[in-house]
Design a protein around this nucleic acid. Structure first.
Lengths: 208, 208, 208, 208
DNA sequence: CATGAATGAGGATTCATTCAT
DNA sequence: TATGAATGAATCCTCATTCAT
């Protein structure tokens, strides 16, 4: 028991140190980019020595992967379309968008910034990420859309494409914000409603 | 006169060499990323010596800027909303989207890949780019939307946000394609119509 | 008295630990070489923690010196030409060689490997070793050879050189074995006789 | 033709630079040992920049291999037992030994020092070296000994072992000299005769 | 202009050593 | 004593940039 207890504490210490490093790395990588950032930068930001990082991560790339892994975990935890059962689409949509966008805090934006920047020019990472995150998410979402469509709640559409368009809309807004667009930043809170509005009714539709 | 003639030829030669280098750099940067790619890689791809690049560009960053500048020029050339006068919005929209998306050839995708990747983690570049490209484009577009709205062709909306959503939709689709989504790639030709359809009528709207 | 007793036990414990470390170090150093081997390698092989080594040895070099010191001690213990009094040279020679070669077990080979490798490129160690081991051994041996020569048992020769040649022969055979020569390894048991035969009679001499 | 000429000059320049680096490395490696010596040390000794070494050698290990390769080439050039046809063994032996020992200049000693030191604790290098140098040399020599033995010029002996003993004698003397034995160093010029004398007649044999 | 050898600053990584527990 | 996490100096190697030819 005593040993198991010690092991547990050990694990927690290790996890804490890893998180400490990943937090620092996230900030630094987002600021300077993965390549311009040095291990020393990260170490300094984490308040530890250069070498210490290599106790917890095999190399610089492994730190990046660590950031990506944390994103995965969070994403998995978030992927809950469950509560949709008894809402109308409009409500569900707004709620879901609000959840997603609210959830992405400043730290989340940094992570997206880093990951996206690197994924765009790193084939291995791209494939890995698509397989582990994007693909599964689409598969999950697809089922919901089919359900709604079969129920006649939304008009007939090519589901995979429709889904991708909605995703793209959100993704594009994220990118636009990352590019520093002030309008998006100011209106961030209103976006869920606006997005839902547009997605559901288009720019010509009645409502609003 | 002879000299002026020579100068002209000179200029063309220089422009040709610069483009040769930028073409090579675009391919290489897209493949490996700006930082992982070496000047030697680019020189080899361009079929010239390392040092030659420094005759045409001050440094590696200047090559990146060169790629960005060519994007600007092309963009400027494309920014023609002019012919909208006598079309209905639906037609105009589809046409405009088709133009934009068609125009982005494989080379264009590479450029976006490079620029986006770097812009995300380079504050200077980001500001520069926003000022020179994104900002002006929005300003231009804004006028058109106001025109349509005043004419009652589209419903009342917060124009800056609406515009940004449409832009985000296209931007997001580009990113999704760059991330390797096969569905988007296969359906690329159909996108202008699908986008227009969704933007105009939403997923609940009538039409098809 | 009790304290003295404890001290004794203490000393033995310390000696045991030191030997445990030196044994591990010998194996590891022989495998990877002194420089490629890390303290962690040695600690792991000894089944202890990195830091523990520094309780028993000042630094990595001191571990190497420890190995060398054990070699010295063994060598000193072995340097017994004493029993020569009543044998003829032939018998004495074979016996002495057999003793020396037999004595060098696998562990001994490893030690020679390590020490020789390092001595060759470490001036301080070289001088130290020459002073403490090689020089004294030659001085001791020289007396015997002079005795035999004066007694007419061997022909007139430049004693220091002759001695060095015999030593070189044995040393050379050790090195050749360390270099992995399979013939030497297979015939190791026969070497004392063959060496004696050649040293005493040459390759042209009568006998066998 | 002009091109072929340029290529030739290029090759010579490259070879010259490589040799310049290898010369410097030989001195430095012999002084400090391969591992203690830094690339900077070698570069400084060669009067060039650190990075330049990497134009001519893939990495530090490749420099070591370059030294080893030059040794090989020299060795191959030296392996001429040819002129033995018309001499008696005694003369041939002395001549051959003189050739070998004379040939090993100060540079040669350094090379042996480096190579031996590293080979002793580097399995890969050891195998490589045995295959490429030691093995072939023994095979070549074996034929000569068999010839002499069949002709009755030397007494019956286990040829592989005899050869190895003679080799060991020379090798051992080299090592002893490398270990700093002053006697060996002073008498180096006389060694061929003394060795031949002992090898041929033993320490008990007649002659002198 | 074009070349590509040379440069050397910069950065990732290793590992001997220390020290709080 | 024993531990092993933390340290940071040391070193290999890369690559943007220069410049003599």
């Amino acid at each position: 028991m005593a040993k198991s207890n010690n092991d547990l504490i050990q694990e927690q210490l290790i996890a804490a140190r890893r998180n400490q490093i990943l937090d620092a790395a996230t900030t630094i990588f987002a600021e300077k980019g993965f390549h311009r950032a040095t291990i020393r930068d990260v170490a300094k930001a984490a308040g530890i020595a250069d070498g210490t990082i290599y106790i917890y991560f095999e190399n610089k790339t492994a730190v990046l992967m660590g950031i990506l892994d944390r994103l995965n975990e969070t994403d998995q935890r978030e992927a809950n379309f469950e509560q949709s059962a008894d809402m109308d689409i409009d409500t569900f949509f707004r709620m879901h968008l609000r959840q997603r966008l609210d959830f992405i805090g400043p730290k989340g934006m940094q992570v997206i910034q880093i990951v996206l920047s690197e994924i765009l020019v790193n084939l291995d990472l791209r494939d890995l990420y698509y397989e582990k995150i994007i693909g599964p998410t689409f598969q999950l979402a697809e089922r919901y859309f089919h359900g709604w469509m079969d129920a006649g709640l939304i008009r007939k559409f090519d589901v995979p494409i429709m889904m991708r368009m909605i995703t793209s809309l959100v993704l594009g807004l994220l990118v636009l914000r990352l590019l520093g667009d002030p309008t998006i930043e100011e209106q961030w809170q209103k976006l869920p409603d606006v997005i839902a509005d547009m997605v559901l009714y288009g720019i010509q539709g009645e409502k609003s």
